[in-house]
Design a protein around this nucleic acid. Structure first.
Lengths: 165, 165
DNA sequence: GGGGCGATGTTATGTTGTAACAACCGTACT
DNA sequence: AGTACGGTTGTTACAACATAACATCGCCCC
């Protein structure tokens, strides 16, 4: 077996593959769950997947408006709420921004790595982390619900770039 | 040695002790660091310590204004920035709110437990958690900087209360 | 074809946070 | 005392993020 060298995609990856995979997975998951991935919701998901950088709600809104879509803040927030509900998008609390989930099939409580140099965010799905949090909390009698784990730092690519300078 | 049964204080603790201890520790730490704990900053810290529930910046602002203090948003945010800088206050990203640090002496990258029933937040200073995060991230070549770890759930007291019903 | 329901449109407003510049205040140096 | 300086606070204006409330649309089912 091979561990991923990085949670971040290669700088030269074919991002269209990411987008296609995400949309296909979304279609499948919504159908399976009986949820309606309308064209608006689908379009918002696609826009979130424009890159691996988390995107703000108002940036999405501007794009929608520039495409002639009737849109106001609730338009975007409702679509995002739906996508989060379905596990297709995550919200990054530190950034007030949203990022596509690369593995919507698996239900998970994810952790996020946020590169402060390139702005990208990657999802870490490390059971050991969730487990450590759960143990620490429960040892103090705390019953764990939702976990928010966001780590700022430098991705492997940016460490290399900065060193070369 | 005894582990703390809970990261949360007893519902019947003498909160004035918390406040006094926090202010004393703040005085000491600022003096040691050559930072100026002015009366405004001290007052904001005291207000943050009004309870163990995280408090929003605009709630602090309202209180200051009600006391006749000339105050606008920057008044509060600047004081909070200072207190955070000195490690006397933490910001909870999920809540956009602020809470006093109970152990400002030790430099730490803390984790927070947030009780969704009573609204209180408690600090967990569990090296194993930070270590697990660091390991998971570094195994993927990510260089870890600041960690944000916030866990929602039920504190021991609220679990008891809810069960009794 | 009418009722019901979920999705979207629309208007207005609430909440959180910051930029930019002016005024103040103590301290050190002259 | 005078004054130059840096850090703190006051003040105004605005930016960024998010939601409440109600109207309208469109589809499915009967």
């Amino acid at each position: 077996m091979d561990l991923p060298a990085s949670a971040f995609p290669s700088p030269v990856h074919d991002h269209q593959d990411c987008v296609r995979a995400a949309l296909d997975a979304a279609e499948a998951k919504c159908e399976q769950r009986g949820a309606r991935l309308t064209s608006l919701r689908r379009r918002v998901l696609e826009l979130v997947w424009t890159s691996h950088e988390p995107v703000g709600a108002y940036a999405l809104l501007d794009t929608l408006k520039s495409e002639g879509q009737a849109a106001a803040p609730p338009t975007v927030y409702r679509a995002l709420d739906f996508l989060i509900e379905q596990g297709l998008v995550h919200r990054l609390e530190r950034l007030n921004a949203f990022v596509g989930c690369p593995r919507p099939e698996a239900s998970h409580s994810a952790q996020f790595l946020i590169c402060t140099a390139c702005g990208r965010a990657a999802e870490l799905d490390d059971p050991a982390i969730g487990q450590a949090v759960r143990q620490g909390a429960e040892a103090r009698g705390f019953s764990v619900g939702r976990q928010t784990i966001e780590v700022e730092g430098l991705c492997a690519d940016c460490q290399g770039t900065l060193q070369k300078k």
